[in-house]
Amino acid sequence: MADGYTIAIDWDNDGDYTDTGETVTDDVLQRGVVTFQYGRDSSRALSPPRVGAIGFTLCNADRLYSPENPDSPIANDVAPAARILVEETIDSTLYPLMTGRIDTFAVTARRGDRSVQITGFDDLSLLRGKKITTEMYAAQRTGTLIGIILDAVGWSAARDLDVGATHVPWWWANSDDAFDLLTELLRSEGPPSIAFIAPDGTFTYRDRHHRLLRAASLTSQATYTSTRTGLDCCDTGGFGEGGFGECDYGG
């Protein structure tokens, strides 16, 4: 596989990204480079989770992405909430960067600007505005209760939930917003607990002890140094002593 990123949209919602017009990488305009973000809505440790967002602009000079164009092979499939997949290949290894769904799809038809602006959200957005009701639970950990929220909203994708370090004496939902309930449980767990949708679409919950227990926090991921190497700037020794250094400065 060649190095680089790929963007695909599952227009016909059949679970793959291999049909006509679904690989849109070559149509992404440089002026609207792909941007995406997820994690927290600010840098504070107690900030609520951020719904992952993505945005990019496609060239539409051939009107492939125009739903009203009868000659477009995907005209009947272009619709809101189509799945988006962003991946990157580095040294022949494929890494997922984000999965989500289209939120806005705006076609620009001016003579000098035939393009489509697309924004989307990851599946954490499915919890917003979703009212749920549950039975009452006694002395359950936060991870178990987050799993109950996911069950109540009909979450069918993968999930990776820590058990949680906090026991909640009593917990229930009575026509409450699922996202608000999730935020309350994260506050009960305390920092640095977090919930997010991983790049491969897995709902992920980490409790307040995860940085003390997980290998990703205990094992060095990279090394940075200020020591110069042979590929860095050449030695400038000799300045102040009448010399010009090894690179013939001033010479």
Rank of each mutant, 00 (worst) to 15 (best):
17 Y>W: 10
94 L>Q: 05
226 S>G: 04
86 V>R: 05
84 I>N: 00
202 T>V: 11
209 H>D: 13
95 Y>G: 01
238 G>H: 14
117 Q>D: 13
202 T>R: 04
134 T>G: 04
222 A>Y: 14
43 S>W: 08
103 D>L: 09
128 R>Y: 00
91 D>E: 13
102 I>V: 15
18 T>W: 04
242 G>Q: 08
119 T>S: 14
149 I>M: 01
10 D>R: 11
92 S>Q: 13
65 Y>V: 04
251 G>Y: 15
73 P>M: 01
153 V>L: 05
175 S>D: 15
175 S>C: 06
17 Y>H: 12
80 P>V: 11
2 A>D: 00
25 T>E: 09
82 A>Y: 09
204 T>M: 03
126 L>F: 10
180 D>A: 05
184 E>I: 02
82 A>C: 15
219 T>Q: 06
205 Y>C: 04
149 I>W: 00
144 T>A: 03
198 A>H: 14
241 E>Y: 10
90 I>H: 07
171 W>K: 07
244 F>T: 12
98 M>S: 09
34 V>L: 08
110 R>E: 03
24 V>M: 01
235 D>F: 12
120 G>F: 09
179 F>L: 12
79 A>G: 06
237 G>E: 10
198 A>P: 01
102 I>W: 12
142 T>C: 06
233 C>K: 15
45 A>V: 12
107 V>N: 05
102 I>N: 03
249 Y>I: 06
120 G>V: 12
233 C>R: 13
38 Y>V: 07
85 L>S: 09
103 D>I: 05
228 R>P: 06
216 A>Q: 15
222 A>G: 08
199 P>W: 12
57 T>Q: 07
251 G>W: 15
240 G>L: 14
139 A>H: 13
99 T>V: 13
177 D>A: 09
28 V>W: 02
159 R>F: 03
6 T>P: 00
78 V>C: 01
173 A>P: 02
232 D>H: 14
163 V>L: 08
197 I>C: 00
130 K>C: 04
94 L>G: 00
15 G>M: 11
15 G>W: 08
43 S>N: 11
225 T>I: 10
194 I>F: 00
153 V>F: 08
180 D>F: 00
205 Y>F: 13
38 Y>A: 12
73 P>G: 04
